[in-house]
Design a binder for these strands. Sequence first.
DNA 1: CTCAGTGTTCAGTG
DNA 2: TCACTGAACACTGA
Length: 278
Amino acid sequence: MPELPEVERGRHMAEIGLVGKRIAAVEIASDPIVFANVEPLEFARALEGKRVISAKRWGKQLWLELDGPPHPLFHFGMSGSFRMQGDDPLRLAAGPNESTDQWPPRFWKILLRADDGTELVMTDARRLGRILLRSSPETQPPIAKLGFDALINPPTSRELAKRLAGRRTPIKSLLLNQSFSAGVGNWIADEVLFQAGIAPTRLASTLDTQETKRLRAKLVSVVRRGAECTVSNQPYPKHWLFHHRWGKQAGAKTTGGDLIEHITVGGRTTAWVPSKQA
DNA sequence: CTCAGTGTTCAGTG
DNA sequence: TCACTGAACACTGA
């Protein structure tokens, strides 16, 4: 699930559920992969009793700023999400396997209980997610290595043009590079390029001024609208490629009736509309 | 049983 | 050293 909008949803959930409260208890699932060999007891002890000052996000990284270090940093990998008891009426944050009728839900990795009883968990079925502690999250890797976040500090078209110059890689690959544009994942890259009318295989350095302007505008609008929809449990706009791109269906078409083709770019399945993207 | 998959890392290449 | 590529990772569900 988690590209920038889904992670923003997690941040929002943590903001509503935890910010301003004290962490009364922490439960850690035994998982040396997701916790990268941090001792469960040590991890729990680092958080218990601390007050949550804010919930922050950069790209796909999400962290809680506590009233003292260290601060917990979450990455959702391919299948992670935050869940809160009683939240999520439309189950958008839950995969079909993550039934909401058990608590903590299947595949839970960490449970944070606030001093008012609110409980928030991170689940991760595929275990490609990570939970770390950082003394100063924003100045340390992995966050320190990330590029711009299209929701927080998008570049101007002029700046974007500079960063595109000399990059001999398909524009889609560059968009997926987190040190270039943090938070962009596979379907967002495809959606942005579709709406901007740029073929995913185009070498980044070959985009002209108009294309760069469109790319910049769509990067910002897709990410912003995507986050708004995901946070508020609303579906994405009906004209988005998103609704038609899954499953590699032969003959799949956009809302506008244009044929969708599936190829591989940068090692990832890529949906695009040849008649609209040059 | 096989395979794809909303992500990242790392060894290998040029 | 840098930019880039592709396999590997781990697991579920179709």
